[in-house]
Design a protein around this nucleic acid. Structure first.
Lengths: 215, 215
DNA sequence: CTCCTCCTCCCCCGCGCGGGGGACCCGGTT
DNA sequence: AACCGGGTCCCCCGCGCGGGGGAGGAGGAG
């Protein structure tokens, strides 16, 4: 029993491209497509798809609104996988809040996309790699509000973090601590790893949010 | 070619239960198990699994730390799927920050779990339904305007500073604000100038110290 | 009308940063 | 004895950042 798909995108080229890719999978069938959110609602009602691949930016009702309407009609019948070219956090959050089951970039590998479709069809929500990381990054700051002590930093790492959070560069920290730049970098790297920070800015944020600075 | 799995949980019963469930899938093979984070690192080095099913709460190095270490060794080789009985947001965030590819509850359906394993093995990150919703819910809007602490800042500059202090890169800010990188850089430069900061790190410090972040 | 601020986007360029290696010493465990 | 974690120092490399410059449009104030 094959999965019934509905493609929604205002760009005809994208629709036909997707169609070719998806139809080459034996267990997937494209049962319809639409170029606007409003058309998507009609098409969904007619074709009763398992999964809707939904673009975000569209004329005449965007993908978010269309998703919200589909979910309102029946929260479990057509699963919605939001598809966009933009690495746009705002869309991500709003899409999922509207009730989308997943979110993927158009630039992802065909394999990855097909994977995502099957997963979503099963009723499992997912967000592809990059986006997930971003989701977490943007949440991170509000995380440790009050509690959640920092992971076990070594003595030197804690010293370095204090100076990093004082706005000093690696060279300045080296001078202040009578160390070489390389050593400071080693410690900074250790701090970043343990705090799950991408750069010193995120480390400083973690330091403040965790109460490390006020303690 | 079958997927090689490593089970990590301090409870032997859980390990054997999982083993039975997973071995019944023809394309899954359990190549080892461990009862602590430290053991997990050893076992991973020996058995070179595709996916590690990792418990969070464990004696002698918890799942988060073990995950971080595995990812540090090789960010793509053993994918880590964090498994827990607790619907604990903090674990969720910290696990994924440590570099886990996914997160699932032990109480999920076997099918769902098996699904998740296959997806993660492909290199796709995922968070199961309930958790995703929670993740979004907790990402409350930092959209709050007004109460402008640093008053010399223009509206745009304040917006940008908020995101900089959220740990985002210029490119990410551009994405979220629907702007070009250049424009973001312009605003960041303005912020740095007005705050007397040398780089974004010092700007974040100023933002925290001035009460800009708590207002 | 002009002037000015704010917002938007573009170029080039130097440099600090962070990741990848590796190396050595020391002290405590095993 | 071998081992390991913490601390120190070194290399190379890619890239994001921040500064320099310029430019156009929208809107308010004079």
């Amino acid at each position: 029993m094959s999965l019934r798909l509905l493609l929604v995108d205002d760009d005809v080229l994208v629709r036909s491209g997707l169609r070719v890719i998806l139809e080459s999978e034996p267990d997937l069938t494209v049962v319809g497509d639409a170029g606007t959110g409003r058309e998507a609602l009609d098409a969904a009602a007619r074709t009763d798809p398992d999964v809707v691949l939904m673009d975000v930016r569209m004329p005449d009702m965007d993908g978010i609104a269309a998703t919200a309407e589909l979910v309102a009609r029946d929260p479990r019948r057509p699963r919605v996988l939001v598809l966009t070219t933009f690495e746009d956090d705002d869309y991500l959050f709003r899409s999922l809040q509207a009730g989308a089951s997943g979110f993927a970039l158009k630039r992802s590998d065909p394999d990855e996309l097909v994977d995502a479709i099957r997963v979503v069809a099963r009723g499992t929500s997912l967000v592809l790699p990059d986006l997930t990381r971003r989701l977490i990054a943007s949440h991170a700051p509000s995380r440790a509000r009050g509690a959640a002590a920092l992971p076990e930093l070594t003595g030197r790492e804690a010293d370095v973090l204090r100076l990093v959070a004082g706005g000093l560069s690696n060279a300045e920290i080296a001078g202040r601590m009578h160390l070489s730049r390389e050593t400071v970098k080693t410690h900074v790297s250790g701090v970043l790893l343990k705090l799950g920070a991408r750069d010193r800015t995120q480390a400083v944020i973690a330091a403040y949010e965790s109460g490390f600075m006020t303690a």
